[in-house]
Simulated scan of single mutants.
Amino acid sequence: MKIQKEIIEFEKGKSFKLFSPGFKNCFFWHYHPEIELVYVEAMNGIRHVGKNISGFTDSDLLLIGANVPHLNFDYGIQTECNQLVLQMRENFLQDIILPVPEFENIKNLLERSYLALSFSGETKKIVVEKLQLMKDKNSFESLMGLIEILQILADSTEVKELNKEDTRIKWFLNDKIRMGTIYDYIHENHDKKPNVNEIAEIVSLSTPAFCRYFKKQTNMTFTDFVNNYRINQAKVFLLKDYSVTEVCFQVGFESLSYFNKLFKQHTGETPSEFKKKHFKAIEINGRIGVITRESSCHKEF
């Protein structure tokens, strides 16, 4: 579960690869020198890129720079999840983009991608449609499609930087703690009372040392991280048509008023507002369905 370098193989004569990964039961905390564009579609999920740990609802489109550590985006997702990943060769920026003056905006985009960029709105919609079309095109047409997508991203204002500082792998070289152990502990205990002293002992650190380490790794305290995880789990239960009160206690909160307050702080809307907005017929794999509490979970721990 330590951070791993992913070795990416490309087909001969191709500058990039486009595929749909599926790790599900695997905690894959990794990095690679290739720049990556990721689209993930799920009711609700958690993204961990560099220092940023945040949730998303419905879908997310991310541009992740070279050597930025990140967790696979389907980790912990208990419902249907679809991904589309585009990885560019390590020399893509240097050999294809930099020599062409007309690609100046794309160059700036790719150079800024080390912060991890999340795209939304019409940008996300258009780019995903073009990614889907690329799957059926020949090599040359696909490359032109990629250039077009990068230009759209470069010109977009519907973008958010997930990190505020450089989090490339050099920042993690001295990390000897197994982050997967921490994730697993929180997953198993978030609905109870996760104990910082207990997890510190599990990863062989004193409590003060663990708190310093955890804050450095995530920019969050252990308590804030647990509450963030609980809120994201709460979204899943709300989308399965549990009542707000049921969800509150299901994910480990002891006060309904505190749960409502914290949920709104994290999402900008109350649990009731979130449920009303998102609990509706959704399209999954070309069919219309409603997510209910009887829906099967696709993730096992």
Rank of each mutant, 00 (worst) to 15 (best):
E111L: 11
T167R: 04
I147A: 10
I96N: 10
F73I: 02
Y75V: 13
Y183E: 07
K192V: 02
V159A: 02
K130L: 12
I64P: 08
G65F: 02
D136Y: 04
D184S: 06
G65M: 02
E188N: 10
Y183F: 15
Q132F: 05
K137F: 15
K170H: 14
A154H: 02
I126G: 00
D166V: 14
R112G: 15
K176Q: 03
F172L: 08
N163R: 05
V68N: 06
I177F: 03
S118C: 11
F103R: 06
K170I: 13
I152N: 04
I147P: 04
G65K: 03
D175Q: 15
Y75K: 06
C81V: 14
P99I: 06
L110P: 07
K137E: 15
K192A: 06
I177K: 09
K130I: 11
T57C: 08
Q83Y: 10
S139G: 12
G45N: 01
D166W: 05
F73Q: 01
E188C: 09
H70V: 03
L131M: 12
D175I: 05
G121Q: 11
G50N: 03
E165N: 08
I97R: 01
I126W: 03
E161N: 11
T79R: 14
V100L: 05
G55I: 10
N82Q: 14
G145I: 11
F56W: 08
Q132L: 07
L98D: 03
N67R: 05
M179R: 12
L71N: 05
L115I: 13
L61Q: 15
E80Y: 09
K125P: 01
L110M: 13
N174P: 05
Y183M: 13
I77H: 05
P69R: 14
D95N: 05
I186Y: 00
